[in-house]
Amino acid sequence: MASLEGAVPDTYGAWGDRELAELVRAAGPGASAVTLAVAQGRRQAVRCSGRVDHAGGEPCTPDTVFELGSITKTFTALLLADLAAQGELALDDPVERHLPAGWRPADVRHGGPIRLLHLATHTSGLPRLPPGLLTSAVATWSSNPYAAYGERRLRAGLARTTVRHRPGERFGYSNFGVGLLGRLLTEAGRGAGYAELLADRICRPLGMRATTCSPDSPHRATGHRHGRALPPWRIPGLPGAGAVRASGADLLRYLCAHLLPGEGGSAYGDALGEALREVQRPRLRLPRSGDQLCLVWNHRRTRDGRELLFHSGGTRGCTTLIAFCPQTATAVAALCNAGPSRRDNFAQAAYDVFKRFARGVGGE
């Protein structure tokens, strides 16, 4: 496992069990599997509960794969920063520079152009969802709303989009924007698909063997919504916004790489090390909040100077959160196979667990 230098693996001890039990309660009866992965100082643990399906199946383990939903966006941001570090693009590049041949950009009415940095900071002015997606999602809204929205519809939707605010001027969370960014990165990355780019630039260097965009990955936890098993999540037109799935063990590798971005040496390479640092740099202050936004990552500074970086995710069948604090060498990934609902508080409970670990009081 790529990890903190000198870390002591603690996969099968009791450390973190209390927090896992807390997350199991927060996930509620809708989830059959819950994973908590933690790094704190020199200690690491991956705690698991339940089985991959309410109907039975194999036990949940550190290698059980969950759908990550919007946590995918942090991978897209890291790909952007890696391509920039290798000189294959620049954060200030206009979108038009990396559009596939024959694609028309959005119509920007004021200012412009939209730049890659705007897509990675949700300031492009693009709407939350691309035109045409809701129409295509009606039949599968409760299970797989993105499944019928492929690249052809993305191309048509972009051409139909009008941006009415000056790019870079306003924050507006956009699956459309980061999904489009993922597509542009495949052009800049010499035409490799998003899944291939992810595997080549991030997963292999960091030793993330279970991380994939494939809906049919082995050892996957079945997603559930209101206790009902769902088919695997599919998001073919916007994979950079929500297609990645990963295990608790892999996410611990991923987060630990962010904790020590400059110490990867030949294991990561200079460009990926630079990219891991670049995604953590605050870019703007969020409206009506003291929080800031980095490249996709949310950034919160505590009164005692600790920096908390975090992102949550959800599909119809899974809820997830990842977070890390560089000052205390703390990282947490929390995963369950029940989709978000108004009644659950899994993501908030996971964030509360992370805050305690980041203060050095978790895991007792």
Score class of each variant (00 low, 15 high):
115 R>K: 12
153 R>I: 04
172 G>E: 12
105 P>E: 09
163 V>P: 04
200 D>R: 15
128 R>P: 01
118 H>W: 05
144 N>M: 05
147 A>C: 12
92 D>T: 12
113 P>C: 09
180 L>P: 07
147 A>K: 07
172 G>S: 13
207 G>R: 11
179 G>Q: 02
93 D>L: 01
155 R>E: 13
146 Y>H: 11
125 G>R: 07
132 G>L: 10
214 S>A: 14
92 D>E: 13
197 L>C: 08
189 G>W: 04
100 P>V: 09
167 P>V: 00
115 R>F: 11
191 G>L: 10
191 G>I: 05
114 I>M: 11
93 D>I: 00
136 S>Q: 14
200 D>C: 06
97 R>A: 15
153 R>N: 08
166 R>H: 02
195 A>H: 10
164 R>Y: 00
195 A>F: 05
148 A>W: 01
105 P>Q: 06
169 E>W: 03
149 Y>M: 02
144 N>T: 06
155 R>Y: 00
113 P>N: 10
156 A>Q: 14
129 L>Q: 14
201 R>E: 12
138 V>A: 14
192 A>C: 11
143 S>Q: 13
132 G>K: 13
131 P>Q: 07
189 G>K: 08
161 T>D: 01
105 P>R: 12
91 L>Q: 10
202 I>H: 07
111 G>Q: 10
119 L>M: 09
191 G>V: 02
121 T>S: 05
119 L>H: 03
158 L>R: 02
215 P>N: 07
89 L>G: 08
121 T>E: 02
210 A>G: 12
188 A>T: 00
135 T>G: 15
154 L>H: 03
134 L>T: 14
171 F>M: 11
102 G>E: 03
210 A>K: 11
196 E>I: 00
164 R>P: 00
117 L>S: 11
185 L>W: 02
87 G>E: 05
170 R>L: 04
199 A>R: 15
209 R>W: 11
151 E>K: 08
114 I>G: 07
113 P>D: 05
200 D>P: 10
150 G>K: 07
101 A>Q: 14
196 E>S: 15
166 R>P: 01
88 E>R: 15
128 R>I: 07
113 P>S: 09
169 E>C: 06
105 P>H: 10
192 A>M: 10
134 L>R: 12
218 P>I: 06
122 H>S: 06
182 G>S: 09
208 M>K: 02
153 R>A: 14
139 A>I: 06
201 R>W: 03
135 T>P: 01
115 R>L: 11
136 S>M: 11
98 H>G: 04
95 V>P: 08
104 R>V: 09
185 L>I: 08
134 L>A: 15
